[in-house]
Design a binder for these strands. Structure first.
Lengths: 199, 199
DNA sequence: GTCTATACAAAGATAGAC
DNA sequence: GTCTATCTTTGTATAGAC
C-alpha cells in the first residue's frame, strides 16, 4: 500500500525496456542491422540476452519498435519545420537541408538502415507487410503536407515518394562522404521537386 | 601446338569465373549481401567453395567485381538514352523512368544492394575507400552529361548526387511495392530536377 | 582447378536455476 | 526479471587429397 522507495515494478520494467531500446538504436546505427548482435545490444545496456528476450520477441521486434519511433520523429520534425516557417518556402527548404545533415551526422543517425532492413524484409513476407504499411502511412502523411502544391492526390503521393527516396539516398551518401552532400543538395532538390507548375 | 578440342585452359578458367560471377549476381539479388552465402553461390554455379576461393579472394571481391559491372552498365545505358533521344528531353525522361522499372523488376535487379553494401563498408575503411572512389567517378560521369544544364561544375555534381540518391531510393521502393513507383515518378522528378532555372 | 573435410567463429534463440 | 549455460545453425575460410 505504501509507495515504493524508488520505482514500481512496472516502472522498472519500462526502464529496462527503454535502456535496451536505446542500446539497440546505438548498435544498429554503428553496425547496421545484420552487423549488430543482440548480444552486444543487451551487454551495452547492462543486461544479458536472457533479459532482452524477456522484453522482446527477438531482433526483428527490437528493430520494428525503433523504426516506429524514427518515423514518428521524422514526421514530428517535418511538421515543426512546416509550422515554424509558414509560407516562407526558402526558409523551410534550408531547414530541411539542415535536418538531413543533422540526422546523418548524429551518433544515432540511421543512415542506410531503413534500406538495409527493407532489403532484409524482402524475403520475409510478414515482416515486409509490416514495414510497407508503416512506410505508406508515412508517405501519405507527407503527401498531405504537400497536397496543396500538387494538382492531385496521386501527384502528391508521387512527389512524396520521390522525396522519401531522395532523403534516404542522401542520408546514406552523406554518411559515406559528408563533403559530397552539403545541406544545399537536399534543399535545392526539394525546391525543384516542389516548384509549382507554371506552364 | 594443335588447337584444343574445345577450350583452352585459360578460356576454361575464364568461363568458370563468369559462371561464378553470374551465380553471385543472382544470389545477391535474391538474398542481399549479408543474406547470400558464398556456399550457395558456388553451388548454384555448379562448383564448391573450394573452387570459388581459387578464383576470388572472398565475398568482398566477388561483390566489388559485380559492382563495377553494374556501374559500367548503368553508365552505358544512360549514355545510350541520352544519345538516342538527342534534345528531346521528354523522351529521355520517359526512357529513364522505364529504365528504373526495368532494372528494379529484373530477376537480377540489384535494388537496395548498393546501399546495403555501403552500410556494410562503413565500418571497413579500405573497402569504403574503394566503393567511394567508384561512386565518385560515376557521379562525375553523370555530372558531365548534365553540366551544360547547370550554372557550374559544382552545381552539376550536386544535381548528379541527388539523381543517384533518388534512383537508388526509388529502386528499393519499387522492389518493395511496384505499384507505388510507376515510371513517371522517376521521369517527373528528373524533369523537375533538371529544369533550367528561369528566374 | 576442383573437391572433400574441417577448422573456426558468430549469431539467434531457448531452458532452467535463482 | 535476470542470468548462466547451452543448443543449433550458419557462414567464411583453409588444408590437403586427387
Amino acid at each position: 500500500m505504501s509507495p515504493p522507495l524508488r520505482l514500481t515494478r512496472a516502472a522498472a520494467k519500462a526502464r529496462t525496456r527503454e535502456l535496451l531500446l536505446a542500446s539497440a538504436a546505438q548498435v544498429f546505427a554503428e553496425q547496421g542491422y545484420a552487423g549488430g548482435s543482440v548480444d552486444e545490444i543487451a551487454a551495452r545496456a547492462g543486461y544479458t540476452i536472457g533479459a532482452l528476450y524477456s522484453h522482446f520477441s527477438g531482433k526483428d521486434e527490437l528493430f520494428l519498435t525503433l523504426f516506429d519511433d524514427r518515423v514518428a520523429g521524422h514526421l514530428r520534425a517535418i511538421e515543426e519545420i512546416v509550422e515554424h516557417c509558414g509560407v516562407d518556402d526558402d526558409a523551410a527548404f534550408a531547414a530541411f537541408g539542415d535536418y538531413l545533415t543533422t540526422v546523418a551526422d548524429s551518433r544515432s543517425g540511421w543512415s542506410g538502415l531503413e534500406s538495409e532492413f527493407l532489403r532484409y524484409a524482402l524475403t520475409r513476407a510478414e515482416l515486409l507487410a509490416k514495414v510497407t504499411e508503416r512506410r505508406e502511412s508515412a508517405r501519405d502523411a507527407i503527401a498531405r503536407l504537400i497536397s496543396r502544391r500538387a494538382p492531385s492526390w496521386a501527384d502528391a503521393q508521387i512527389t512524396a515518394t520521390a522525396i522519401i527516396a531522395l532523403f534516404e539516398g542522401l542520408l546514406m551518401q552523406r554518411r559515406v562522404n559528408p563533403a559530397s552532400v552539403p545541406p544545399v543538395v537536399f534543399a535545392g532538390a526539394l525546391r525543384r521537386l516542389l516548384a509549382q507548375a507554371t506552364s
